[in-house]
Design a protein around this nucleic acid. Sequence first.
DNA 1: CTTGGCACTCGGGAACACAGAGTGCCAAAC
DNA 2: GTTTGGCACTCTGTGTTCCCGAGTGCCAAG
Lengths: 337, 337
Amino acid sequence: MVDDRKLAVLRAIVEDYVSTNEPVGSKALADRHNLGVSPATIRNDMAVLEEQGYIAQPHTSAGRVPTDKGYRLFVDRLSQVKPLSSAERKAIESFLAGAVDIDDVVMRTVRLLAQLTRQVAVVQYPTLTHSTVRHVELVPLSERRLMFVLITNTGRVEQRVVELPNVVDEQRVAHLRAMLNASLDGCGLTSVPDKVADLPERLPPEDRPLAATILSVLLESLVDRHDEKIVFAGAANLAGADFTVGLRDVLEALEEQVVLMRLLGETSDLSALTVRIGSENPYTGLQGTSIVAAGYGSGDKQLARLGVLGPTRMDYPVTMGAVRAVARYVSQILAAS
Amino acid sequence: MVDDRKLAVLRAIVEDYVSTNEPVGSKALADRHNLGVSPATIRNDMAVLEEQGYIAQPHTSAGRVPTDKGYRLFVDRLSQVKPLSSAERKAIESFLAGAVDIDDVVMRTVRLLAQLTRQVAVVQYPTLTHSTVRHVELVPLSERRLMFVLITNTGRVEQRVVELPNVVDEQRVAHLRAMLNASLDGCGLTSVPDKVADLPERLPPEDRPLAATILSVLLESLVDRHDEKIVFAGAANLAGADFTVGLRDVLEALEEQVVLMRLLGETSDLSALTVRIGSENPYTGLQGTSIVAAGYGSGDKQLARLGVLGPTRMDYPVTMGAVRAVARYVSQILAAS
DNA sequence: CTTGGCACTCGGGAACACAGAGTGCCAAAC
DNA sequence: GTTTGGCACTCTGTGTTCCCGAGTGCCAAG
C-alpha cells in the first residue's frame, strides 16, 4: 500500500516543504529530486499518501504539506539524525568548558542550544532526586535567625532562611551541624527523610525544638524542588516563525514552568531522544509546535532533560543532531565536575 | 507660545492615542474631552504643537500622534503617577511575602511586575557591591577539589568549585576557613580585597599555595558579578504590540544581559523613577520602546534596579505607579530579611 | 502501472473605485 | 486678536473585480 517510492515521495515533500515553506507540487518534486518517474505518477502517489493521512493540501489546487502523521513517519523511518560538523563540536566544547558553576552551565547550555538550532531552547536544572548530600551548613544570621544551606554533589546549592523558635547559641548550632553532616554526608536526597527521622531523639531535650524547626525546613526544601527549575532562551527565534496558533500563546506557555516541565518530562525513557510533533503535544496552546528533547546526566544516572521547541515545520535531522550533541557534552561536563 | 490650552490638547491627544491606538483627530478630541472650544480651534493648536515637534501625523490627512518629545512633556509636566488600588496593593504584598530565598524574591517580583503592567518586566539581582560578607564556607569535595561558598547579608550565595594545587587535609581547610571568616565577617564586599591581602603571610609556608588558590577564586567571584544577573518575564505581552522596529529585535535585546544592564542602569540617580522614551534609549534595536525603571533596596542603600519595557505608546501614569509600588514592596521585603 | 494530455479550480496579486476621516485655509463673528 | 463655521482637498484603507498561473484529478493511450 505504501511502498518504497511513496515513502521517497513523502521524504521529498517533507524536505522541500521544510526548506521552502511552501506547499510542494508534483512538478517541483519531479524536477528537484530525481525519482525517475513523471509528475503524473507522483500525483497518483500523493493521492494515496493523502488518503492515508500523511499529507494534506491547504486548498484544492495547491501543493501538498506534510501532516503531523507525515512528520512522524519521516522522523521514525525516513530520516537519520544529522551529526554536527566538527567546527560546531569544537565550538560547543569550548563554550561549555568555560562554565564556573551549575547556574553557569545551565545558562550556557540553553543559550548554546538556542543559537545552534535557531529555535527556542529549554533546559531543566539537574534534578535533586538522584544527587547526594555533600554538605549541610548552618550559618547564624542573628540571634533568632539562621541560614540553612544544602550542597549536593552536582554542585547545586539550596538555601533557606530559618526563623528560630528561641534564641540559640553558636555552640548548639555547631553541634547540630556536625550531627547533620555525620548523618547525611553522601546520602541520596530521597533517603534524607529516613536518615534524619530519629535525629531529635538523639539530642538533649532542650535542643529538640531547634532541630525540629531546621529539619522541617530541610524536608520542605527537598519537596519544594520536586517541581524543578527550568529556563529557556532564544525566544527571539520565534519572531519569524508562524504557528497555527498565535505567538502569544507560545510565549505564555514558555513562561509557565509547569507546562515546560510536562513538555520535557512526560516520557518513560529519560535517556532517549524524543520528538513530539504538533498535536502529539499534551498542551493545547502549543499546536503547531514540535519538541525535540533528550535526557542528560552522567552515564546511567539521568539528571534531567533539555530540548528545543520550534514550529512543526522544522528540520528534524539537524535539530535532533544538535540536541543529542549538546546533551552529550553537558553530560560530560557535569560528570567531570 | 505653548499655553495651557495647548498643553491640555497635548494631554488629551496622548491619553486618547494610548487608549485607542489610532491617530486622533480634532473632532474626536472636541467630542471626548470637554475643552470648551471648537474643532477648528483645536486644529490651530495642533498645528502649533506639530510645529514645535510634540506631535506628528503619520500621513497628510490623518490624525495626530504624539512624538517622543510629546510623550516626554506629558510625563514630565502633564501627568501624575497613578497609585495602585488597594486590592492591587494587597495582592502584591501577599504575593511577595511568600518568597523563600533571594532567587524566589527576584522571580516573584519580575512575574508580578509583568502581570501587573501587562508588559515586559526586568529585574536586576541585588548588587553585591553594597552587601557584606556573612559567612564563607569551604567544603571539601574530593582530595584535590573543594567548593567555595560565599554568603552575603542580602541572602545571596556565590559558589565556585576550586581545583587545588595539591592534596590538602581537612584540618588545614578548616583552619583556613576559620581565618577567612574571622577576617571577613561583616566586611563590605568592596573591601574584601584589602582585608585578605596579607592573609597568606600569616599562614605557615606550606599552606600558602592553597590559600592563594582559594583567594584568587574569591576575588574573581567578586569581580565576575560586577556585571550583574538580570532576569525578565512577560515576553508574551509583547506579542500583541507593534513596534516601529521588529519584535525580533526587541526579544534579542532582552536576551542580552549587557543591553538590559544598560537599559536599567545608566542613570545617575538610582532611587528616582526614571522614564526613557523611544529614541532617548541608548540601544538602537529598541526604537519604539520605552523603559520605566526604579531603584530598590532598603533606605539609603539602593541595591539594584527594576522596571518594565513596553511600546512607546504605553500608559505612563499607570505603569509608573506599578513600578514604584513594586519597588517599594520589594525594598520592604529585603529590608525585613 | 506509468505517462501525457486536458479541463477545472482556486488563491493571490494588480487595477480600480470610493467612502470617510481629517486637514488647511479663509472669511466672518466674537 | 482669537475663535468659529464652511469648504475644498488629500489621503488611506477597504471592497470589488479580474485574471494569471500553479496545481490537481481524471482519462485514455503506451
